[in-house]
Design a protein around this nucleic acid. Structure first.
Length: 112
DNA sequence: TGGGTGACCATAG
DNA sequence: ACTATGGCCACCC
């Protein structure tokens, strides 16, 4: 119904396409969706991700510097890092190691 | 109508 | 590494 519901679903869909052991950024998703809405809206959508029926791997979305800025929105502040490391992504001081190596850009990976 | 805030981003110093 | 600005857009007073 609401306009932002559609936006949420598009965000969730992209996030679900992030492969295990890879990460992307809020801005990359916003850009892929057309920048009509800013990257803040992607973070806003993530806020609603936990209550979705389908699982949304929100832990694979970090900010442009590879920092886990959203960790406080998980069940525990450690969960995000634990989930990432379980997938082989090393995190030190709330920051993804070799970020550029794990970085998954929807603009590139989902390009036509 | 307007100010403050935010899981952001870019640029500048 | 840090702060400051400006842009972004929806939310809540």
């Amino acid at each position: 119904m609401e306009k932002h519901e559609d936006f949420f679903q598009m965000v969730f869909q992209v996030v679900r396409l992030i492969p295990k052991g890879r990460v992307t950024s809020y801005g990359a998703i916003a850009k892929y969706l057309g920048t009509a809405r800013s990257s803040r809206m992607v973070g806003w959508a993530m806020n609603a991700a936990h209550s979705q029926k389908k699982v949304v791997p929100a832990h694979r979305v970090v900010n442009r510097n590879g920092e886990l800025t959203g960790k406080h929105h998980f069940a525990t502040p450690f969960l995000m890092q634990e989930l990432l490391e379980k997938e082989g992504v090393k995190v030190v001081k709330d920051k993804v190691k070799n970020f550029d190596k794990y970085y998954w850009d929807p603009m590139v990976e989902l390009a036509l």
